[in-house]
Write a protein that binds this DNA or RNA. Structure first.
Length: 485
DNA sequence: AATAAATGCCGCATTAACCG
DNA sequence: CGGTTAATGCGGCATTTATT
């Protein structure tokens, strides 16, 4: 029984090739930076789940010790068990929560998602199987997930954060298959050579596989600007074309495209140069003055931090605003200090700066608009003023989509795709904060009490530089569109 | 005129794109 | 991970067109 390992590894059976690689070629695994934070979220939620069941006992990280501790705890007066560890015929599992019931135990698997997903059930099914085989009386199997309607009342009270869904029946229906899964996993593990499974949907759905770089290096090759694969909302059109071996846009007839955006892409690729329609400039010239270009940064913790917020709520902590008038450009900004709820100072300072006249220019309006609506809901005394800001919103994204395309955009009109084609000198490369995700991480680090003042100041500078860059980018894009033909 | 096949359309579900 | 929006996909039904 050398090398205890969790059943989770067996469960990578959705793809035998992945399981084999995990066991035999772990060095090929490619863990991207984003995964760290994702696992951290899971840990935090697990932590809360335990705090909600006081008097529980946490089993050791070491699996042998945990098995022994679990065995001992099961024989004593029932109390909540965390990470209780069991094995049967070499299959080892850990249960996030074991809660004593009148007639046995409720087993609870804790997830940071907001609903029960099919792919959650397999884990629970194997755990259930092992526990049943070991004679543990299970009364109910539950999946605890985040209730995103929960409003944090403050003071560390998280009762209600987790919804316990009864998955006993689904799990019961899978019991008959568990032996087969385990046998298949064993067979796969024992193979001498890597299973020859071609890349498919399992590589990205529901999550990207960490071995994708190994199995499907072609997926990481840059897509050439003339490939039909760049067509947005390509769907069956692209599938069909590829099936016919027609990958090059330049060899196709315009007539096959019903979508005007596809037609524009086709034209641009065919003629080999960017296209800008006069309507873009007309729309820009139709805007009044002064022009306020704004961008928000937000943080959306799974576990609410501030009283009155919900799980995963986007809490705004920073804005940047470029103010363009007939005779120049000015800049204003706000960045919360990270010591308390940033929402009130955020919206008050914004209203102060943004006045009551002139277009409020954004890139992808739904995002900023939603934050403004939420601000109005949170602070009814400011709702009227906030609504007038909402009414002034002008969105550059649809303007860009309908009237501009450059071959380097590769089918995307996101600001990060458009900017380099218009103002390459405004690249985000080398900036300490270079994208929205990094901004969230930076602000989280500013809030952390253990962060040094020097580090805080460096992060603040990075955030301010990043957000200012975003609104300057919008100014440059709008000015670029405003050319007379 | 009757029937079958093709086309069009509506409403709902799913996917894709965007922001953080 | 969430939410918003818009495009696409698809089943079912009606209408049109082709076939006999």
């Amino acid at each position: 029984m050398a090398g205890l390992s969790k059943s989770r590894i067996l469960l990578n059976l959705q793809c035998p090739r992945r399981l084999w690689l995990k066991l035999h070629r772990p060095e090929l695994e490619h863990v991207d930076k984003g995964m760290d934070t994702r696992f951290a979220v899971g840990d935090q939620v697990g932590d809360i789940a335990r705090r909600l069941h006081p008097g529980g006992v946490l089993m050791d990280d070491d699996l042998r010790t945990a098995l022994e501790q679990t065995r001992a705890a099961m024989g004593q007066t029932p109390r909540p068990l965390f990470e209780a560890t069991f094995q049967h015929e070499g299959t080892l599992v850990r249960a996030d929560l074991m809660l004593p019931d009148e007639n046995g135990w409720r087993m609870v698997e804790v997830k940071s998602s907001t609903s029960v997903k099919d792919y959650h059930l397999n884990d629970a099914a194997v755990q259930t199987w092992v526990l049943r085989q070991q004679g543990v009386p299970l009364t109910r199997i539950e999946l605890a997930h985040i209730n995103n309607q929960f409003v944090y009342p403050g003071e560390g009270h998280y009762q209600g954060l987790l919804t316990h869904a009864d998955i006993s029946e689904s799990v019961q229906n899978m019991q008959a298959d568990v032996r087969t899964w385990i046998a298949n996993a064993r067979a796969t593990a024992g193979l001498d050579a890597e299973p020859d499974i071609p890349p498919g949907k399992q590589c990205t759905d529901p999550f990207e596989c960490s071995f994708r770089r190994h199995c499907d290096p072609a997926a990481f090759e840059p897509i050439p600007p003339h490939s039909v694969r760049i067509l947005p909302y390509g769907g069956n059109l692209v599938k069909g074309l590829l099936a016919e071996g027609k990958e090059d846009l330049r060899e196709l007839d315009e007539g096959i495209f019903a979508n005007p955006r596809h037609q524009r892409i086709w034209r641009v690729i065919k003629q080999g140069q960017a296209e800008l329609s006069p309507e873009a400039g007309e729309a820009i010239r139709g805007l009044g003055w002064p022009r306020y270009y704004i961008d928000f940064e937000t943080i959306n913790p799974a576990i609410p931090i501030w009283t009155g917020t919900r799980p995963y709520q986007q809490v705004p902590f920073q804005w940047s605003c470029h103010i363009e008038t007939a005779d120049g450009l000015k800049h204003a900004a706000f960045l919360a200090d990270g010591k308390g709820d940033p929402r009130r100072p955020f919206i008050e300072s914004l209203l102060e700066t943004i006045g009551d006249e002139g277009p409020v220019i954004v890139y992808n309006a739904p995002f900023e608009r939603s934050r403004l609506i939420e601000s109005a809901e949170a602070f009814p005394d400011l709702a009227v003023r906030i609504q007038s800001v909402i009414d002034r919103i002008f969105d550059l994204l649809p303007l860009s989509r309908d009237h501009y395309y450059h071959p380097d955009m590769l089918g995307s009109w996101s600001i990060k795709a458009v900017l380099p084609t218009i103002a390459p000198e405004l690249s985000y490369e080398g900036m300490t904060v270079a994208h929205g995700g990094a901004a969230q991480e930076a602000f989280a680090e500013i809030m952390a009490p253990e962060t040094s003042e020097a580090r805080r100041e460096a992060l603040r500078r990075g955030l301010l530089e990043y957000c200012e860059r975003d609104t300057l980018a919008m100014v440059r894009i709008a000015n670029f569109f405003d050319v007379r033909f």
